[in-house]
Design a protein around this nucleic acid. Structure first.
Lengths: 139, 139
DNA sequence: ATCCTACAATGGACTAAGTCCAAGTCAATG
DNA sequence: CATTGACTTGGACTTAGTCCATTGTAGGAT
């Protein structure tokens, strides 16, 4: 189940109770927790885990490329464990809910050479915005 | 010149020295200043203008749809006066420099119905990432 | 099994970016 | 030119995150 944990172990990660808990909490599909949410859930299993450790651990997972940082606004960054399969995001403008999406086409190819301004382009993120069914119903 | 100012006036905006200065500072192409940068430049022309006013004014311009808020990371939001023509952004991962770009294709059409999760979709932002010529040369 | 040590965790102080508010000021209308 | 409701101010507050000196511990070596 904890695919993420498995992959991390394979990279010579020193395994500690804290790291295990963070990885477990973050595992799954359509998971996009903030650092504070991760911390809250981690505390439920390991009461003395500190916020700093959660930040450190999330940061390392991002560096290792096993987790993606998503910042859709100026609110807290969210952490997405679905790093192995490329995808983009659909965000509710009201409640902030996020879904993973897979648009057709190759956005990288869609950027004309004349618009690259000499940049070495490494990737592209797409953020679709709208109102989720819940919020639409509530309105 | 101040196209932006012109458009704002036409919306029954009460014109004050502060608002005029903010609008002037923000005018132009490929302009993507942070609130603090706007404040710094505004102070140069109107020394007693406060940070709160700059935030208020930028917020109102965004609400009126005359300026777009761009947040490419957890750093400060940037304000883009080029709201009348749709475009996306190319961001340098090193120095944060931003250019406006116009990719081909219609990304909204590229999102299959099966991936819309019942959302009422209102728009999409694309953020290309890479290294700008300056930073590439420095490396 | 025990010891070492480099790596990891802790928590509290600190920072950056932004919001909020009560009081004072002023642009536009009459 | 008086009025008034909208605008501005500055300082306190909030949120999200970083930094760092100290303490703890995983995992290899003995």
């Amino acid at each position: 189940m904890s695919d993420l944990l498995e992959r991390l172990r394979g990279r010579g990660w020193r395994m500690t109770a804290q790291r295990r808990v963070v990885a477990e909490v973050l595992d799954g599909d359509h998971v996009h927790l903030t650092a504070d949410e991760v911390h809250a859930r981690a505390v439920a299993r390991l009461p003395e885990i500190s916020r700093a450790t959660v930040y450190n651990t999330l940061g390392e997972m991002v560096t290792l490329g096993e987790v993606i940082e998503v910042s859709t606004d100026r609110r807290a960054k969210r952490y997405d464990p679905n790093a192995h399969r490329p995808h983009h995001h659909l965000v509710c403008a009201k409640c902030g809910a996020i879904r993973d999406v897979h648009p057709a086409g190759d956005p990288l190819a869609d950027l004309p050479a004349g618009e690259r301004f000499g940049f070495m382009i490494s990737g592209v993120e797409m953020t679709y915005r709208g109102i989720c069914p819940n919020c639409a119903a509530a309105a």
